[in-house]
Every structure is written in C-alpha cells, then in structure tokens.
Design a protein around this nucleic acid. Structure first.
Length: 450
RNA sequence: GGUCCCAUCGUCUAGUGGCCCAGGACAUCGCCCUUUCAAGGCGGCGGCACGGGUUCGAAUCCCGUUGGGACCGCCA
C-alpha cells in the first residue's frame, strides 16, 4: 500500500456536542498523518442531522481542535479548493448523484426517500491500513436485525443525505486519500464501498483506529466523567499533555519514548504502527504525562499556564513581577500533577491571607513558641536583606540547632507553616529567600514567632 | 441472534520464528536521599487467555475453544 505519499485526510465531526476525547483522538491521528506525510488536514462538518446540529457546537469543536494544537488546512471557516466543507452546503451533489443512481436503476425512490439497492452475490473486500484484510459478502453489508438484506437509505424523507451516503460523496469530492476514523466505522465501510462501486469510483484507503475505553472497558462516554477536551483544560491538564497522552493510545514512537512533543510525534508517526487493541483511558497515566510536561516547560510558559488558575483563585497576580512568579513556580519543582494543583499549592507566594486562613499556630506550645521567638529574632537581627539567602539561612539554622541541641525539623516545620500555611512545600529556606526578609518578618510576627 | 474485529503484567505498550524461562512506562510495595512533601535513585510484585497443531525451535504461523468489543437507525 502506498501510504507514503502526501496524504489528504479529514476529520469529520457532526456538530452535536463538544469535541470529546474519542473525537480528539481521531482528529489527532488524522493530523499526525497529514503532517507526517506533508499532506493536507481537512475539517469537514457533517451537519445533516438538522435536529441536533448547531453553529455553537461547530465553534466549540473548532476551539477544541485549536486548543489541542491541531490546525487544519481546509475547512468551513477557511475554505479550500475542494469545498464546501459543510455537508448542508453540498445538497445539490447529494441530490443529483442520487438521481443518477436512480436513473441507472441502482437506487429507487420510496416516498420522499431514496434507497440504494444492495447487490447480491458480490464480495466486498478492503485492505485496512491498521486492521488488514477485511471481507464481507455484499448481502451482509447492510442487514436488518433478523439478518435479512436491507437496502441502504441514501436520502432521508426530510431530503437530507444519510451519513453512509454523504460520506462517500464528500470523501470523493474532497479527494481524500485515506479515511482515518474510529473502529466503530469498520462495519459501515462495506456499505460505502458498495456505493463507490455503483458510482464507478475508486474508494480511498481506510485506516480504522482502536476505540478508547473507560476503566470498565466500555466505550468511553459521559458516564466516565469528563468528555469534552475543555474539561481537561479546566482540570489543569496542558494541551500538550492531552496530545501526548492521546497519541500514546494505540501508538508509540518507539525506543521506549513516552514523553514527547508534537514535532517529535509528527516525525515518527506511522499508520502501520498503530495498534488494533482498544485502549483503556487511564487518568493516572495522564497525570504522569502532565506532570512531566509541567516539569520540562520553560518558566515563562509555565507561568502562562498557571496564571489563569491563580486569577480564578482571586490571587493578586498583577502585584508581582513575572520573574518573581516564575521563580516561585520553579521552586515548586515536581510538586503538583496539574496546573490547577500547582496554582493551589503555590498560593502563599502571592497572598499571605491564604496562609492565615488555614494556619493558626494553635499547635505550638508556649515553650516551643519561646524557643522559636529566640531563634527568629536572632535570625532577623543577624541576617540583613542581602544575607537573606537560602544557603545562609540554612547554615544559620543548623548552627543554632547544633549549639542548642535541637533538631532542624523543630525550626523548619513551624517556619514552613508560618510562611506557607502548608505542611508540604519546597525547602523552607528557599521559600524564605524568595519571599524576602521583610515578608518573612511580617509572617513570622503574625504568628508571634518573632 | 447475525456480521466483523480483538486477545502480552491491574493499565498503556515493545515484541513480527531463535537475541524473550518476555523489555519499558504508569499504578502499587519496599529501600535510599531528606527540614516536609514531591521529584530523583535503587529494588520487589506482576503478563504471552486455554487447547491442539506446524517447526529442530513459537508470545510470534495455522485451527479450535473461551473471553471481550464494535456494528446491525430515514444518528453520525
């Protein structure tokens, strides 16, 4: 199979809902194949379901694709040489071609509908780029529940074309070289091939992708929680993580490589290396992939990703220089699996009120407090702003503990709580340095530690 | 019920007849590091669904069984 030339592929959602995970997966693989072959990625809107299709959903789907970083070359919004890219705008073709099939005796009218006469005794065979050879007898291509042959509806009573018919007209009109779609369409393929044959057209190549399952091994659906890609954004997953994770469902770039960017995926992608087994969507792995991307991001990009969450939390982002904010996030290291968590875990760098609201120092006994006051008063007295550096602070604390027979922990933990209000944080001395001597003094005094 | 498809650790996968008494990653467990928690390092647990063939040799090829999935709408 000559799958190595420039591909013309398409993602063809129906605008009846937001871009969900399954659709994003299909779009992603189409995009990868187009970019890998230096071909064309087309967006086509299948809006023949008048009842459920809306312009809003069409917009949402486009936004979802953009969020994922999947740009298309031809589509309803930007046009292209093989348009229109919205099915409701190709009505003449559907009607004319259906009429020609009726004239040729290959289809017939029944009321306002047009049916395609399913031929008997033919063999429908195609070579799926992923599943391999698939063979079906023509009379089995379209059947009723009882197994009897059922002619294929081409034009519905409302005058609109059906999916199985329109998709053939469109893919041919758009000169699609390879149809890449979910495995649930394998059973539709023979019907479509029968129509290609009746029209005397050569069918494109087909490549069916394994389904994405929920943890219960059932096709992913609303029951499994978040379905729209935007919900993942809201939960704190980076688009590059969702891209990376979804690419891993049914494919690997090889060499045990699991964390990668779009560019690498484009370079290594091969349709022939896609798996056939349905894949379970594992949030834990998504968490891991997200964390890795979060760790390897450039500080300024990381800040851009976190900022919206800080703003949602009503934190005074604008009070601080970008450099300070970037450093606070760098200090967070590998803490937090999502941007949302990272934003929450780092709130004390922007707002002392957050600290006060969750820590009261009630756990400190009078004796401990007296000891802490001695230490911090001494530290504040001896270390001036320019000396307020993590190594110096730590050295100072260690010496104090050594001479006083205390453990570093006895100072570090209360200090951690006073500065961050959390028992989990980066190193306290690093936090102290970034916060600065004055801010530390304010916080320590508030808890009567200095 | 019919048609089609699938089958390697709990999960994602590597593996296309010998390099595999099966490799990696996530999860999980333990140890180390350590001012906390992450991160990081090291190690443990854990799988070729089953039965027949073919072959000198099978996770890899064939057949059957079992299990799972998709589809069978004038939805797409």
């Amino acid at each position: 199979m000559e799958l190595n030339q420039k591909a013309r592929v398409r993602f063809a959602p129906s605008p009846t809902g937001a871009l969900h995970i399954g659709g994003a997966h299909t779009a992603l693989f189409n995009w990868l194949w187009a970019r890998h072959t230096g071909g064309t990625f087309i967006l086509r809107i299948e809006d023949t379901d008048r009842e459920r299709s809306t312009a809003e959903y069409e917009q949402t789907i486009m936004d979802g694709l953009r969020w994922m970083g999947l740009d298309w070359d031809e589509g309803p919004d930007k046009g292209g040489p093989r348009g229109p890219y919205r099915q409701t705008e190709r009505m003449d073709d559907y009607i004319n071609i259906a009429n020609s099939l009726v004239d040729a005796g290959k289809a017939y009218r029944d009321g306002d509908a047009v049916f395609f006469r399913v031929p008997r005794g033919e063999q429908v065979a195609f070579e799926d780029a992923i599943y391999g050879a698939i063979n079906v007898a023509s009379e089995k291509a379209s059947v009723n529940t009882d197994g009897s042959v059922k002619d294929i509806v081409m034009i519905k009573s409302d005058g609109m074309p059906t999916y199985n018919y329109a998709v053939v007209i469109d893919d041919h009109a758009m000169d699609i070289t390879t149809v890449i779609r979910g495995e649930d369409h394998i059973a539709n393929t023979p019907k479509q091939i029968l129509i290609y044959r009746a029209l005397g057209w050569t069918p494109p190549h087909f490549a069916h992708l394994p389904m994405i399952l929920g943890s219960d091994k059932k096709k992913l659906s609303k029951r499994h929680g978040a379905t729209s890609v935007f919900e993942y954004n809201d939960m704190g997953y980076l688009p590059e993580s969702v891209f990376n994770f979804l690419a891993l469902l049914g494919w690997t770039p090889g060499d045990d490589l699991e964390i990668f960017d779009r560019e690498l995926a484009v370079g290594k992608f091969e349709l022939s290396k896609v798996t056939r087994k349905p894949a379970v969507f594992d949030m834990k792995k998504l968490d891991y992939v997200n964390q890795e991307h979060l760790k390897s991001m450039r500080p300024d990009d990381r800040l851009k990703a976190i900022e919206p969450f800080w703003r949602d939390m009503k934190l005074p982002v604008d009070k601080y220089p970008a450099k300070y904010l970037e450093e606070s996030l760098t200090l967070m290291g590998g803490r937090g699996k999502t941007t949302k968590e990272l934003a929450e875990f780092s709130d004390y760098f922007l707002d002392f009120d957050a600290v006060k609201s969750r820590y009261t120092a009630e756990d400190i006994t009078p004796e401990r407090r007296a000891a802490l006051k001695k230490f911090f008063a001494s530290a504040l007295d001896r270390l001036q702003p320019e000396e307020w550096r993590a190594p110096r602070l730590e050295e100072f604390a260690r010496e104090w503990c050594e001479t006083g027979g205390a453990s570093l922990k006895e100072i570090a933990m209360p200090m951690r709580f006073a500065l961050s209000g959390r028992k989990v944080s980066p190193g306290v001395f690093e936090i102290a340095e970034l916060l600065g001597r004055e801010e530390c003094k304010t916080r320590l005094k508030h808890f009567d530690f200095a």
